[in-house]
Design a protein around this nucleic acid. Structure first.
Length: 190
DNA sequence: ATTTTCAAT
């Protein structure tokens, strides 16, 4: 059965962003994943259009659709064309799970015209070897996997949050957690 | 320095 195609949201509320994207290790109860994206449509080596939006995982009575799969089903249905190149960038609150990493890797293997960069606020179940392997398989497929730094949070705030003109206010410990996660990701990808 | 974490209890 095909998952239901949903359109992305335009943006998210400030409270949602601050809660879901907080990168502190004691940030628990983040039982959702939010995925902000930009899609650059590239023709003759220059960007000709942009799509941006926000997905979150969908929880229905019968189906669970992770945010990455929500993106892929929308992208394949509404955007993807074989003779066009795409630069896709994700900003996710959690990094992809094992299954999503596999699906994304497989998708990219079938579509050489799609380039993907992933910035993630936190690493999902990164203590488990099979989740680590998922991240490695993405990296080996040419996906650039990175930890979100201050500039990336600020960019997300400005582009994907109904910020009402308010500036991004970084939380205490953002940089320390970033450094830790970056080191951890480097160890995983080595 | 590292967790329950795309929920379920």
């Amino acid at each position: 059965m095909n998952p239901q195609i949903r359109n992305p949201m335009k943006a998210m509320d400030p409270g949602t962003f601050y809660f879901q994207f907080k990168n502190l290790w004691e940030a628990n109860n983040r039982n959702e994943t939010w995925l902000c994206f930009t899609v650059e449509v590239i023709k003759q080596r220059s960007t000709v259009s942009w799509e941006t939006g926000v997905f979150r995982n969908q929880v229905d009575l019968e189906t669970h659709c992770h945010a990455e799969r929500c993106f892929l089903s929308w992208f394949c249905e509404d955007i993807l064309s074989p003779n066009t190149d795409y630069q896709v960038t994700w900003y996710t609150s959690w990094s992809p799970c094992l299954d999503c990493a596999g699906e994304v890797a497989e998708f990219l293997a079938r579509h050489n015209n799609v380039m993907l960069t992933i910035y993630t606020a936190r690493l999902y179940y990164s203590q488990y070897p099979n989740y680590q392997q998922g991240l490695r398989s993405l990296s080996e497929k040419g996906v650039s996997v990175k930890i979100m730094d201050y500039e990336d949070f600020k960019y997300c705030w400005e582009k994907f949050v109904y910020d009402d003109g308010e500036p991004f206010k970084p939380w205490k410990g953002l940089k320390t957690s970033f450094r830790f996660l970056k080191r951890r990701l480097r160890e995983i990808l080595q």
